[in-house]
């Protein structure tokens, strides 16, 4: 079966249940899925569990094989993960860090790794940063380099944790259209996004997570309704339909319970 399936995912931090038996719908290749939800809803934890960076209960199945049983090396070729931030202290230059993403877990020739890494920086429009140490980059620039590290192994499944949090408008568009393109090539893309306006514009599917469960999922206009936003975020929201069938979410204020 093609696609990503996450079933009955549970994660505990000490005595606290962060995720308790969460199910995701089948996420198909070609789709960009956004995980949304309030702070501490468990979005990042879910992403890390799918990436196998976090012990969890339940099942994560990619294209029919249980990811927990795929050897680490093979998994690294299948799954790309972009964390919320890269350490600001490293004096590695950007290009080197992307080469490390290729050569640390796999045997790739130096020539091939260098060329592949450079091509990815080029594609993301950050080739000018190639020889800059990570420590001298801005938060947004580091985020773009982090994306390069995640996609350089050409993974089937791409997981991104708040990839736009430090990006300016132009870079947000750059990153999101790159995600669209990667999905269009037959990849499964899953991103945690806080910005619902961006989510409404770019996602094929939104999964709304609340209190460790999937509260709702579907196309943006199915999930981003005033009722659900009031319930999950506690805000008063209006949703307007604009041209080309897109929706716009406007937040008027905190929700006063009737």
């Amino acid at each position: 079966m093609e696609g990503l399936l996450a079933q009955n995912i549970s994660v505990r931090y000490g005595a606290r249940n962060v995720l308790s038996g969460l199910d995701l719908p089948l996420l198909r290749p070609g789709e960009v899925t956004v995980l949304a939800g309030p702070n501490a809803a468990g979005k990042s934890t879910l992403l890390r569990a799918i990436a196998q960076l976090q012990p969890y209960g339940g099942k994560v199945v990619l294209d029919g094989s249980d990811l927990a049983h795929v050897p680490m090396r093979d998994r690294a070729r299948l799954v790309g993960f972009m964390p919320q931030s890269l350490p600001a202290s490293s004096s590695l230059v950007a290009l080197e860090s992307v080469i490390a993403a290729l050569r640390s877990g796999d045997t790739v020739s130096a020539r091939q790794a260098d060329a592949t890494a450079m091509a990815v920086l080029n594609k993301l429009g950050i080739e000018a940063l190639a020889l800059e140490p990570l420590s001298s980059l801005s938060g947004g620039q580091r985020q773009m380099v982090s994306l390069a590290q995640a996609i350089v192994r050409d993974p089937r499944l791409l997981l991104l944790d708040e990839p736009t949090s430090a990006l300016d408008l132009a870079r947000q568009v750059r990153l999101l259209s790159e995600l669209r393109r990667l999905a269009g090539e037959g990849r499964i893309v899953v991103a945690v996004l806080h910005d619902l306006a961006l989510a409404a514009q770019w996602a094929d599917r939104i999964v709304l997570i609340h209190g460790g469960h999937t509260r709702a999922e579907g196309r943006p206009e199915e999930v981003l309704t005033p009722e659900l936003l009031a319930e999950v975020y506690g805000v008063e929201a209006r949703v307007e339909r604009c041209s080309r069938g897109r929706i716009m979410v406007m937040i008027d204020g905190e929700h006063a319970p009737a």
């Binding site: 090396r73 490293s90 490390a100 993403a101 877990g105 990570l134 590290q149 192994r153």
Partner: peptide, 13 residues
């Protein structure tokens, strides 16, 4: 790779 953080290194394999 570990200089890029533990999560990154692990996701690299």
């Amino acid at each position: 790779a570990l200089r890029l953080g533990e999560a990154q290194a692990r996701s690299f394999g």
